[in-house]
Design a protein around this nucleic acid. Sequence first.
DNA 1: GTCAAATATCACCGTATGGTGACATCCGCA
DNA 2: TGCGGATGTCACCATACGGTGATATTTGAC
Lengths: 208, 208
Amino acid sequence: MKDLSTTERGRDRPRTQDAIVAAAKRLLADHGFEKWGVNAIARSAGCDKQLVYRYFGGLDGLAEAIGRDVAADLESALSAKAVPTPDSYAALVASLLDAFIDVLRDSLLMQRIIAWELSAANPLTLGFAKARGDALARWIGRIKGDLSPPPGIDAPAFNAILIAAIQHLTLSATASAGFAGISLQSEAEWQRVRAAIRHLVSTVFKSA
Amino acid sequence: MKDLSTTERGRDRPRTQDAIVAAAKRLLADHGFEKWGVNAIARSAGCDKQLVYRYFGGLDGLAEAIGRDVAADLESALSAKAVPTPDSYAALVASLLDAFIDVLRDSLLMQRIIAWELSAANPLTLGFAKARGDALARWIGRIKGDLSPPPGIDAPAFNAILIAAIQHLTLSATASAGFAGISLQSEAEWQRVRAAIRHLVSTVFKSA
DNA sequence: GTCAAATATCACCGTATGGTGACATCCGCA
DNA sequence: TGCGGATGTCACCATACGGTGATATTTGAC
């Protein structure tokens, strides 16, 4: 659970930086943002905390680096779930949401960051939110093609509602194993949610 | 921002207890659960922290008392939004969600507690979640009458999705002023969300 | 080989935290 | 009046935190 200490691997700034970032991510994913601090990170990275200040300018800079990483990971993970060019706006949204469920459920780190964003509003968390939002927007733009939502429907509002729901259910599943009486432990139980979302998307975007 | 200190109001255990609970609620609502601790609470209540241990058995007991309070507040606030006996399941759900938006947006304390539940899973937060869930269930049972969801529809899943969305949007509005590109500052912007939810509920529960 | 810069470590500061035992003060009851 | 329990205060502990200045060690250029 701990990288080689700097003494046992020689002096190598890039490697040390990587070790620090890796340790910081691991700690954030494992224990959340409450216990997240220079002391714990340096301890876990096997180096002196001074280096966190020298190489990243403190926690803020480190968090910024992590934010960039996570946004990039998100984008590539989404791209890997190659959504074939959809043939309707409803299909686009449906596959988008499905892929997002996969990626988010898979990334404890991203879940922690979202929880952090919901708990505190500081420059750090705002930066996280922006980086993720941008990555998501880029991906959507890429697969969107020339599809556009049916008229008479407030697509941005609907999409926001569904993405919000997915984030909340995912976080709640991790923290409390479920939400509002429905358990969210197994893949089967998540299939129920996926089915409901698909149904929702298709009925709403076809009612125009 | 601070109650009368115990010295200036004489010895009065019930009043002191109330002052502690009030201070604890205020601090939680104002600064979130990260800065929440015996020291800050006692300081803000104007009494010695020892009393927190004596009267509540520490932070856990205090949190439990707050959880009960908040659940009761939730229930009575929801009841105050007198939802006239609805005439269809769709109408029931629609008015339920609308009332829930009002109440949650109104209670910074409840928002903090939800954020806490999403960030950490300890006996405390699980207790919170249970108390709120029970209060909600009681209220629903009271106004439900003999209505039941249309067949062929996974109502629990749909309801969970929509409640999750509302909680997430509310928390996100408080923390980051918006979500997924849509701003959630003014009542007008919330009307957009409300309209989308109403639309969603009516099309889904009538498509059976 | 020398010397300076880059890298890494160490020791320390002030502050805050959760928690506890000993003490002071007040009130009601005998 | 005195006594005992309830109420409230205080001083202190160990621990952890973020942050910084001084120092040691290695590397690479000359």
